[in-house]
Design a protein around this nucleic acid. Structure first.
Lengths: 224, 224
DNA sequence: AATTTTTGATAGTATTACTATTATATTTGC
DNA sequence: GCAAATATAATAGTAATACTATCAAAAATT
């Protein structure tokens, strides 16, 4: 498994970039450093001028890779969801009990992405932190419909669909597998955010607690 | 009850504005027309220049009421949550069965805010639509911690806390009432958004279906 | 070595998000 | 009804952002 993981290349929609960042060291630097900067200061404070300074390049060079910072955020988001999807698939592949499988998927969703196994050697925690704080802004966006149409969210949607399938496998009579799936995936980002910024709005201040909360929710909802 | 409703004044944190918009017809116009414009074009496309043109006033006049459009969005959000909280309190006030009470609160959260009863005579649907699309951006914001400290989210948090209390009343042994409460409130916005923009990610394409989904989730989670 | 591609350096534009100033209404107190 | 206070309008201006354009230099490819 380690061999597989060490060569992970997420198949990101090629319209998200102008030039494939994985095709050059500048491109890889752009993505790596943008993850560092967005993690540190947030997407609002982030711009291509600052990024250029950080990597010792120029704005115009960065614009040759990405049309704008929003597209770059979508790229980073796809990277995250691609890694998570891969981890969910790997972790659940040899399981036969449907509930066990679902719970393993759940656990995986709350774990840190194995970013080290891609071309972008960054801390998985940084990537996760960006998604927790910024992903909602990526899709609550004025262009959401045309970007969705263009397939910029397809990995995210595919993951949600997989999870929905696992839910349906556990209980074929359950009528809300899609809603429950997106609730969990959304929650896997949001509850971390709440813990960080609105402490009193959640009881889950650790990965483990979060898992137990959703495990309880899932098992009771699907088996009673 | 109708008398009460017709005079609803939400107590919004006075630091959110420079001059109380309810104190003049220009102020009321600013809020009303901003709701119209944000509903129509989204917060990104919205600015004080366009708003000034819309109401036949000037940017400088608007800046005397609100420091910037972000604060205005927080004001509008507080208005929404204040109305929802009021409705939840009114609707559940005479109920004695805890589960019945919780479900009534849930139902109320999915209903349209009674905006007509405030100084701002706008369509409740517009307000709800703005919250569905834009509220996440209001709190996934670089200044979230200091704004939270300043009490700009207090109505939202109080509503979540109320709901959490209702959950705890139904099942005193349940350990995640805060998380479940925020999950529901968050969901009351997000699932509508999914239905509009990511149709396949949810099974709930009506208020009624949404209610049934969460009712199922709540009853199974709290009573089994 | 020649050619193509990539990157850097520099300059410039339109828009946004404000701030400042002064003039003109409008309201309020007497 | 008039003076004083306050609110609003009109206009101008600034700093930052999000780009676009152009050309030269460097690097990679053939």
């Amino acid at each position: 498994m380690h061999n597989l993981l060490s060569n992970l290349r997420v198949d990101i929609n090629s319209n998200l970039y102008l030039k494939d960042p994985e095709s050059s060291s500048l491109g890889i630097n752009i993505v790596k450093s943008s993850i560092d900067l967005i993690d540190l200061h947030g997407i609002e404070e982030f711009n291509f001028k600052k990024l250029a300074k950080e990597i010792g390049s120029t704005e115009s060079s960065i614009y040759r890779y990405f049309e704008n910072k929003h597209r770059l955020l979508l790229y980073i988001s796809s990277l995250y969801w691609g890694i998570m999807e891969f981890q969910v698939v790997v972790q659940t592949s040899n399981m036969f009990d449907d509930m066990e499988k679902l719970l393993k998927a759940l656990e995986t969703l709350f774990s840190t992405p194995q970013t080290k196994c891609t071309s972008f050697q960054v801390e998985g925690q940084k990537l996760r932190h960006i998604l927790n704080s910024e992903f909602v802004k990526a899709y609550h966006h004025k262009l959401v419909d045309e970007e969705n149409e263009a397939g910029y969210f397809s990995i995210y949607k595919r993951l949600s669909s997989r999870l929905s399938g696992m839910i349906a496998a556990v209980n074929t009579n359950y009528r809300y597998s899609n809603s429950l799936s997106s609730l969990i995936i959304e929650g896997s980002l949001n509850q971390f955010f709440l813990s960080e910024h609105f402490h009193n709005l959640t009881d889950c201040h650790s990965k483990d607690n979060l898992y137990l909360f959703y495990k309880d929710l899932l098992t009771k909802t699907l088996t009673s």
